[in-house]
């Protein structure tokens, strides 16, 4: 499904700020894998997702989606394979546009945008149903500007947008981190539901170890731009936060230095 082969990325090479963000990362995802990714700050979690999304090109290595080499495809051309939700709830939607306009933009991901009207009546009905499914009352506010919504509402809409046209791979970059705990739980529940319904392959970065254990069928831990721990199946199900921390110090030779992850 997804193959990363020896991806390396160094930011600000040759300066005092030089930072090896990804160090020879290789991973293969199978169809239907739901991978949770944890690691401290600067471990390379978001960087890996950005490499897949094509925000910039890696220094070396290869990225294949369903056997297609996308390493040199620009971000907007790769978008047809990917659904993305970002940490910042403001980032996934266009605030000056209506809810239904945002959804209509997302439905056309990977298609040519021509001079047809931007939204059809049939689509509207589809959006109304999907929004009603969120249970946030948005189905009656479809022509409201997205900028009027709360962070949680915007994140829920972004999640809909990311999966409206079924992506080959769903990338979730700490998409609940900026939400209050109750809203975060709700968005996470919705995430599980959509991934299960559409049988999506997904990668979810999280700071929350418990979430990383509870969700998905596979767990990856990253440190200093490398994958230091990769576990799936029954072994993953039986993980506890304690064993994860132990694994971390074993593999990295350091204590897990991230209060946010520990406190959760």
């Amino acid at each position: 499904m997804l193959e990363l082969k020896n991806i390396t990325k160094t930011f600000f090479p040759g300066t005092v700020n030089e930072k090896v963000a990804l160090n020879d990362v290789s991973i293969t995802l199978n169809d239907g894998d739901f991978v949770t990714i944890i690691g401290g700050n600067g471990a390379g979690k978001s960087t890996m997702l950005n490499a897949i999304a094509g925000v910039w090109r890696p220094d070396c290595g290869q990225i294949l989606i369903d056997g297609v080499d996308v390493t040199h495809l620009p971000e907007h051309k790769r978008a047809k394979y990917l659904g993305r939700v970002f940490q910042d709830p403001m980032m996934g939607t266009a605030k000056d546009m209506e809810i239904e306009e945002n959804l209509a933009l997302a439905l056309r991901r990977g298609k040519r945008r021509g001079l047809r009207w931007r939204i059809t009546r049939a689509e509207r009905e589809q959006y109304r149903e999907l929004l009603a499914g969120l249970d946030l009352g948005l189905e009656t506010r479809m022509t409201a500007k997205v900028g009027l919504l709360s962070g949680g509402q915007r994140q829920a809409v972004t999640l809909l947008m990311a999966t409206l046209k079924t992506p080959k791979l769903l990338l979730l970059d700490e998409h609940t981190a900026a939400l209050d705990p109750k809203t975060a739980a709700k968005v996470l529940e919705l995430t599980d539901q959509i991934i299960a319904e559409k049988k999506l392959t997904a990668m979810m970065v999280t700071h929350n170890m418990k979430d990383a254990i509870v969700h998905g069928n596979r767990l990856i831990m990253m440190h200093n731009g490398r994958i230091i721990f990769d576990v799936s199946g029954v072994e993953k199900k039986n993980l506890t936060v304690e064993t994860l921390l132990e694994k971390f110090s074993q593999s990295s030779g350091e204590e897990f230095a991230n209060d946010r992850a520990l406190l959760n």
Binding site: H76, D96, M97, E101, R113, R116, M161
Partner: peptide
């Protein structure tokens, strides 16, 4: 008419949120 079409909407999206536009496959 133009800004009501798919192409026009993608232009408005580009101005409103460029990251989101790229993520939705728009050639910004």
């Amino acid at each position: 008419w133009f800004f009501g079409t798919e192409m026009g909407a993608s232009l408005r999206a580009t101005g409103s949120n460029i990251q989101m536009s790229r993520a939705q496959g728009i050639n910004t």
